[in-house]
Amino acid sequence: MSGFVQTRSSRGLLALTGLRQVGPATAERLANRFATLEEVAEAPVSQLQGVATAAAIESIRQRGSITESSRRAEAVLEASERHGVRVLSVFDEDYPKALQRLTDRPPVLYVKGRLRDVERCVACIGTREPSEFGEKVTDRIVGQLVEARWIIVSGLATGVDTIAHRGAVSRRGRTIAILAGGLEKVYPAHNAKLAEEILADGGALISEHPIGVPSAPRNLVQRDRLQSGMSVATIVMQTDIKGGSMHTVRYTLSQDRLLFAPVPQGRHAEHPKSQGILALARLTGPELAKALGAEGPYERLLVTKYARRPVAIPLASRDDYSSMLATLERRLAEGWQSESTGGSEQTSML
Rank of each mutant, 00 (worst) to 15 (best):
A289W: 06
A291M: 13
K305R: 15
I313E: 08
R267D: 15
E287P: 11
P272N: 07
G293L: 13
V303E: 14
T304D: 12
L280Q: 00
A294R: 09
P297R: 07
K273E: 10
E299S: 11
G285F: 10
G285A: 08
A316H: 08
K273V: 08
A281F: 13
Y306L: 03
S317H: 01
D319V: 14
A312R: 03
A294F: 10
I313K: 07
A281Q: 05
P310K: 01
S317T: 02
S274E: 02
Y321E: 06
I277Y: 05
A289Y: 01
R267E: 15
R309S: 15
R300Q: 15
R267V: 15
K290G: 13
R282S: 04
G293E: 09
D319N: 06
Y298A: 03
E287V: 07
P310L: 01
L283R: 05
A294Q: 09
T304H: 02
G266S: 11
T284L: 12
A289C: 02
L292T: 12
G285V: 06
Y298P: 03
A291Q: 09
G276T: 03
P314H: 03
A289G: 01
A291H: 05
K305W: 14
L278G: 00
Y306E: 03
L292Y: 06
K305F: 10
L292C: 13
L292W: 12
A294H: 05
R318C: 03
P314E: 01
E299M: 05
T304W: 04
A307Q: 15
Y321I: 09
R308E: 15
R308H: 15
A307K: 14
H268G: 03
A316F: 04
R267H: 13
G293Q: 05
G266K: 11
P272A: 06
L292F: 09
Q275H: 11
K305E: 15
S317F: 00
L315D: 00
S317V: 02
D320N: 05
R309E: 09
E295W: 10
E299F: 07
G266Q: 11
A281M: 08
E299C: 03
Q275R: 12
K273M: 10
G276W: 06
R308D: 10
L315A: 00
G285I: 11
A312F: 04
P310N: 04
L315W: 01
P310S: 08
A289F: 02
T304E: 14
G293M: 14
K290P: 04
K305M: 15
S274T: 09
Q265P: 13
K290F: 10
E295H: 08
I277L: 04
A279R: 09
A279H: 04
T284E: 03
R309V: 04
L315E: 01
G293H: 06
R309T: 03
